[in-house]
Every structure is written in structure tokens, then in C-alpha cells.
Design a protein around this nucleic acid. Structure first.
Length: 350
DNA sequence: AACACGGGGCA
DNA sequence: TGCCCAGTGTT
């Protein structure tokens, strides 16, 4: 038996019963695919149910506000996915009359849908013969065929796409694609792959040449950046001062607290005697409490956050236009980054 | 081609 | 700790 026959046999025996596999509705498949970008199935699953229930159709999705989408997305990360989904939903509503496209060429033109997602939706929803290439697929191919080209180089991406196209079962593209990814996720894992019971080990280059732990090859990742966020908690009369973030940086368009970013860890004395704090509030605030520095670990940056509970004398301070007072009882309606949510939730118990 | 973009799980 | 996860968009 060849590779793909073995693969499909393995898949039929070992596949998980995942909710988005029981439909050919391109909208539902789109929902699942975007949620699962760079996200483990276990982590994304509750969000999939949440979105499918809140927005059963793309028409319902298109009618939502960005605040609502980001709020529902809270905690999942890579929030541009949610923002792009809303743009795409609105285009689908207008240009396609609410009928989510299922052709690769239509899909690839939409925001947030790249090569992988266009191939996934078009094959799963309409059995279009487009091969998906995600982290799982490139790992399986790199090991099975013994490809040492980095999977994330430009040449590598092109090569793995081409090899995936050649391997694709033209009669069963949807099942083939699902099987490749499931095989990578469950059997041909990044670490500790289960080679002992692998159905294709006889033909696997990496297994036969003892290269399983060396493949796939990946270009080195960028250096982690340290950032220092000094946050200010200002509350009065069951209200708290929030800040709506801009659309350039991390957590775009989400809500946090007034803050000053410094290029290194600043002491409270340093911070509260700096011109920055005067220009932020117009006055020097009174410190009520200083919290210990918290480290918030993200993939590409480590955020060192220190929260200050402060007091501003009535009517003497000025506020940036992105600042506003929110009622504490409404705090749970704002899309908050994880670290802000945890702090405010601990403080206010909302 | 390089970089930005979250949060969590696992060895 | 370091690596990876059903990647995409911007510069």
C-alpha cells in the first residue's frame, strides 16, 4: 500500500470526532479554521462553540460590532483574527449576499484567509482538490520524504506546498487533508512521535535514517523583546478609568488601563518624578498602592507589568481622548488582554 | 525576507 | 526554558 492509502486507513481508525468535521457549511468551517490558526484544538474548542452559538450565520456575524467580537475572542490571542473575521463577514454579507464562498479563488481574496485556510475551506466544504499545508503537514512531509529545507523559508514553503499537492488524493481531498493534519497532530507529533506503531514507518525517510528528531528544520525565531508597562488603576464611585488601545501595537483596539511604557524597569520614584507622568495626567498623582512586577510571557515578547493604584485630585487632572470611566459592573463587557483581565478581576471581583 | 501578532501546553 | 500550535498581514 502506498502512503496515502495507509494514511486514510489510519485516519478512519484514529480520527477524533470534532464538531467542525460534521458539516460542509463553509461558514462554520471558516469559523473553526480561523480559531485554530496557531491554536491547539483543546484551546480553541470552547471558543468555537461560543462563536457558533452567538453567530449561527455569517449574516449574524456581520451584524456584530468589533467590541463584541473582540470580547468573545478575549483570552485566545492573535486578536487580528477576530478583527479580520468581522471585515470578511461584512464583505461576504454584501458581495455574496450572505452566502459564504467555497471556491479557493474567492476565499483567498478575503481578509484573514491565506493559502492554508483557503485550501481548508474549499476542500472541506466543496471537495476542491487543494492541499492544505500547516505545521502538521509540513512536519509529516519533511520526515516522510526526508526534506531538510526549512519549513518556514520562502523556498521551503513553496516546496512543501508543491509536495503536498503531489501527495493529495484527488478523489478524496477533504478526507486526505484532514488525515494529514490529524496524523501530524496525533501520531507524527513534534516531540515524541509514536514511531513504534506508525503505519508508514517502512517508507519514512526520517525513521529509517534516524532523523526523526532532526526533521523538520525550522529557521531560528526572532529574539524575544522585553517590554515594561507601568499601569495605573484609577477608580472612584464604582467606576474605573479604562483606555482604548490604538490599532498599531499588541492588543489592538482592546481595552486596558492608562499606562506608561518605559525602556527598562523603572522604580516608583523614577516613574512618579518623570515628565511622562505629568504629561499623562497633568498632575503628579498620589500613590495608594504599588503591586509587585508581574511577568506576562508571550511568544515574541515578555511584558513586565507593574500596577499602581493611584488617586487623582478631583477636577484637576486632564485625560487623553482614549481614556474614559467605565462602571465596574460593566467591566466584563470590555475586551481585556489576559493580564489586565486577571488584575482587574482580582481587584474588583467582577 | 523579516517581523508583528497571544496565550497555553508540554518535556 | 524552549518549542510548537489547523497562519496571516505588513513592511
Amino acid at each position: 500500500m502506498n502512503f496515502t492509502d495507509n494514511l486514510l486507513q489510519w485516519y478512519n481508525k484514529n480520527r477524533r470526532d470534532l464538531p467542525w468535521r460534521n458539516t460542509t457549511d463553509p461558514y462554520i468551517i471558516w469559523l473553526s479554521e480561523i480559531i485554530l490558526q496557531q491554536t491547539r484544538v483543546d484551546q480553541g474548542m470552547p471558543y468555537f462553540y461560543r462563536f457558533a452559538e452567538a453567530y449561527p450565520t455569517v449574516t449574524a456575524f456581520a451584524a456584530a460590532t468589533e467590541d463584541e467580537i473582540l470580547k468573545l475572542w478575549q483570552g485566545l490571542g492573535y486578536y487580528s483574527r477576530g478583527r479580520n473575521m468581522l471585515k470578511t463577514a461584512r464583505i461576504v454579507q454584501e458581495k455574496f449576499n450572505g452566502n459564504f464562498p467555497h471556491r479557493y479563488d474567492d476565499l483567498i481574496a478575503l481578509k484573514g484567509i491565506g493559502e492554508y485556510t483557503a485550501a481548508a475551506i474549499s476542500s472541506f466544504a466543496a471537495n476542491q482538490a487543494k492541499a492544505v499545508v500547516d505545521g502538521n503537514v509540513s512536519r509529516v512531509i519533511a520526515r516522510y520524504l526526508g526534506i531538510s529545507e526549512p519549513i518556514n523559508s520562502t523556498a521551503g514553503k513553496k516546496l512543501f506546498q508543491q509536495l503536498a499537492n503531489e501527495l493529495l488524493n484527488q478523489q478524496l481531498p477533504a478526507m486526505h487533508n484532514q488525515a494529514m493534519m490529524e496524523f501530524g497532530a496525533l501520531q507524527c507529533r513534534p516531540k515524541n512521535p509514536d514511531c513504534g506503531i506508525c503505519p508508514v514507518k517502512a517508507g519514512c525517510y526520517a525513521y529509517q535514517n534516524n532523523q526523526v528528531n532532526q526533521l523538520p528544520v525550522k529557521l531560528k525565531t526572532v529574539k524575544i523583546k522585553n517590554r515594561y508597562f507601568n499601569y495605573f488603576l484609577i477608580s472612584s464611585n464604582d467606576e474605573v478609568l479604562l483606555n482604548k488601545r490604538g490599532d498599531n501595537d499588541i492588543w489592538a483596539n482592546m481595552y486596558d488601563l492608562p499606562m506608561i511604557e518605559t525602556n527598562e524597569l523603572w522604580s516608583p520614584e523614577q516613574l512618579f518624578s518623570s515628565p511622562d507622568i505629568v504629561s499623562l495626567f497633568g498632575i503628579i498623582p498620589q500613590i495608594i498602592e504599588i503591586y509587585p512586577v508581574q511577568k506576562h510571557i508571550l511568544t515574541h515578547q515578555h511584558i513586565h507589568a507593574r500596577f499602581y493604584h493611584i488617586c487623582l485630585e478631583q477636577n484637576k487632572f486632564k485625560l487623553k481622548s482614549t481614556f474614559f470611566f467605565a462602571e465596574v459592573k460593566n467591566l466584563n463587557s470590555f475586551a481585556l488582554p489576559k493580564i489586565i483581565f486577571l488584575f482587574l478581576n482580582k481587584f474588583f471581583k467582577f
